[in-house]
């Protein structure tokens, strides 16, 4: 412990409370409150209502939510497969090859999402692969963006995996493919689910590349939130944002339940 005196400790906590609560807790609280209000032109909101939520779960809004969910699930599954595959392949390579592969797969993190959107737009707006105007172009961009994170977390998990398990399996007569499916992947399962949660959350909140790409009939939730706030419907936007956060949290919660179960086995 760093601070021993009672006053010192209280001062430290006060600093934490003064900085932490307004900065991080307040924004989320404000959005939550606003989503239940019709007016906010003073210190406190007024006109409690649930009308925004009633609107948020039907029509255009509901469609945006399902669009986001479908996009996020598809992108996460593909990204996880691709990222895990690359991470496993990299682990089997020599030092140089591993570095190159890791760098390649980490590149999308460094490239601005807007640029990823632009690049995908430029590349797939013309034959041979014409995806512009279809949902696939959004899903594709999301996949590119989240693959890097999937790769990163799976790589880290592989590095932490003790080679003694693989060696024990090999000494018992298991060929490499058997070791992969019966030992390594099961042992990586907790990390894989964590990576899946991360990918899902990132895709759910993705706005930059999506703004560049979305066709009119495939408008994910963040875009809808933007169009709502842009035309001044802040309260509707808040309700949609709460729906977005809730959907993300639910998915993360589900994933962490699978995860504790997997690591407890």
């Amino acid at each position: 412990m760093l601070v021993h005196s009672r006053t010192g400790r209280w001062t430290a906590w006060a600093v934490l409370a003064v900085l932490f609560l307004p900065l991080f807790a307040l924004p989320l609280l404000v959005i939550l409150t606003a989503s239940f209000s019709t007016h906010w032109s003073g210190a406190f909101p007024s006109g409690p209502t649930t009308a925004h939520y009633a609107a948020a779960v039907r029509g255009e809004s509901l469609q945006a939510l399902t669009t986001s969910l479908v996009t996020a699930v598809t992108a996460s599954v593909v990204a996880l497969t691709l990222g895990t595959w690359a991470a496993l392949a990299a682990a089997a390579l020599g030092k140089k090859g591993k570095r190159l592969l890791d760098a390649l797969f980490m590149l999308p993190v460094a490239v601005p999402s807007v640029v990823v959107g632009l690049a995908v737009l430029v590349a797939f707006s013309k034959p041979p692969v014409l995806l512009n105007g279809t949902p696939w172009i959004v899903i594709l961009a999301h996949t590119v963006l989240v693959t890097a994170f999937a790769h990163q977390s799976v790589s880290a998990a592989i590095r932490r995996l003790d080679p003694m398990y693989e060696q024990a399996a090999a000494s018992l007569g298991a060929r490499p493919s058997y070791v992969l499916f019966r030992v390594r992947l099961p042992l990586l399962l907790p990390s894989l689910t964590a990576a899946a949660g991360l990918c899902f959350a990132l895709s759910m909140g993705e706005l930059s590349a999506t703004m560049m790409l979305y066709p009119p009939d495939w408008m994910p939730l963040p875009v809808l939130i933007f169009t709502a706030t842009d035309r001044g419907s802040l309260f509707t936007g808040s309700a949609l944002a709460v729906v977005l956060m809730a959907a993300t949290l639910l998915a993360l919660l589900a994933v962490s339940r699978i995860r504790t179960k997997a690591s407890y086995r």
């Binding site: 991080f24 307040l26 924004p27 989320l28 404000v30 959005i31 606003a34 906010w40 032109s41 003073g42 210190a43 406190f44 949660g197 991360l198 959350a201 990132l202 759910m204 909140g205 993705e206 706005l207 963040p222 939130i225 933007f226 706030t229 802040l234 936007g237 808040s238 944002a241 977005l244 956060m245 993300t248 949290l249 993360l252």
Partner: peptide, 27 residues
């Protein structure tokens, strides 16, 4: 959890807090 939310939510919240008709100006 905070890290898993999209960044624009912060701006949205700040609109309520510091916007022209937000909390701070209202106060």
């Amino acid at each position: 959890v905070f890290l898993s939310f999209p960044s624009f939510l912060i701006t949205l919240a700040l609109l309520f807090v510091y916007g022209t008709v937000g909390m701070a100006n209202g106060l």
